[in-house]
């Protein structure tokens, strides 16, 4: 009678060990590829929303989602760079709008040719990023405080500069609106803005993975003291992140003009929080040093899919906000678990 019990006990033990090691393996896989979990959630979301309303699956609807997410997804590129350095940028939306108003106003009111107006906007965005970077690296103020301040400052400057007015697309040169132009790929209709957004993702995914600068961004966010001891000039890397981020944000402003067909000082009100949401859902750690561009892209699309899918399912807008809140908390909890990996 005792022998069989012993065997089952041993078997149960072995089974439980096996289970544990399976969980362990899963943990390690997530640790190496943190974008897998939002990817799975995205897949499940797409399937469920398609089952709830077949119109969700329509090519025209899927094309619309990519267009809807193009602005926030571009902001999230800059946000990812900053969060990888263990910072946060609350001024992403403000900088994008500031740059877009400069482009639109110089083109519409000063008659500056489109490409030059774009260049001016890109310079303003880069300068705004540089100001953030300067305050953070030279005055050693925390990024949260600096960008909370510049969020107000850039928003106010934009309102004063634009005298609170929206510039209608009909006063803008075609070049300014070109990113809103749709192109047909098969039966899939996307805008040039989406193409630019995807190109930026490809570029920054490459840069983070394959260049020394990318490694240094991770190292600075991971452990600034260790990075500094390894000979990395931490402040220079931080400054460059905010500078490059500003340029990307200005491009997001250009995408926004094309998408909306106008330039308005209140074009993207929730952009800051939505960009942070996309980054966090995409598996990038708020503590810095880990995360990927592909994760952020998945995060941004997931937010777009959830809002679009819930609307098509006939649910109130409040459910979208609820769903995204839950996603953020789950994502951060998952990150905490993933980071606990040990030998």
């Amino acid at each position: 009678m005792t022998t069989p019990t012993a065997t089952t006990d041993a078997e149960a033990l072995i089974e439980s060990l096996d289970r544990k090691s399976a969980l362990h393996k899963f943990h390690h896989v997530l640790h190496k590829y943190p974008w897998i979990s939002p990817g799975l959630v995205l897949l499940v979301a797409i399937i469920i929303f398609g089952l709830l309303n077949e119109r969700f699956w329509a090519i025209s609807n899927l094309s619309l989602i990519t267009q809807q997410v193009s602005i926030v997804a571009t902001l999230a590129i800059a946000q990812t760079l900053v969060i990888l350095t263990a910072g946060i940028d609350l001024s992403v939306g403000a900088i994008a709008v500031f740059a877009s108003m400069v482009m639109a106003k110089t083109a519409a009111e000063q008659g500056v040719p489109g490409p030059i107006a774009l260049l001016l906007g890109l310079m303003v965005g880069t300068a705004a990023g540089a100001l953030n970077g300067f305050l953070i690296t030279r005055l050693r103020l925390p990024p949260f405080i600096v960008t909370l301040g510049t969020l107000s400052i850039f928003t106010a400057i934009t309102l004063i500069y634009a005298t609170g007015k929206t510039i209608n697309g009909k006063y803008l040169p075609d070049f300014m609106l070109i990113l809103g132009t749709k192109i047909q790929i098969g039966s899939f209709k996307i805008t040039y803005g989406v193409v630019v957004m995807l190109l930026l993702y490809a570029i920054f995914a490459y840069v983070l993975r394959n260049t020394a600068w990318g490694k240094h961004v991770y190292a600075v966010g991971d452990d600034p003291a260790a990075a500094s001891l390894a000979g990395i000039q931490v402040n220079r890397v931080l400054f460059s992140v905010y500078l490059v981020g500003g340029l990307v944000l200005a491009i997001a402003g250009w995408i926004a003009i094309g998408r909306v067909g106008a330039a308005s000082p209140s074009i993207i009100p929730d952009a800051n929080l939505e960009s942070i949401t996309a980054v966090v859902i995409g598996g990038t750690s708020l503590f810095g040093g880990r995360g990927t561009m592909i994760g952020t892209l998945i995060g941004a699309i997931l937010v777009g899919v959830v809002s679009n899918g819930l609307v098509l399912a006939g649910l109130d807008q409040a459910y979208k906000v609820l769903a995204i809140g839950i996603l953020v908390i789950v994502a951060v909890a998952l990150d905490q678990w993933i980071r606990k990996v040990r030998a």
Partner: peptide, 21 residues
Amino acid sequence: YQTLAVAPALDIASNLFLGRE
């Protein structure tokens, strides 16, 4: 240095060549 001066999230090769890629 006494403190383990490595970037924990980076891999071994990246740490070995950090700043001298």
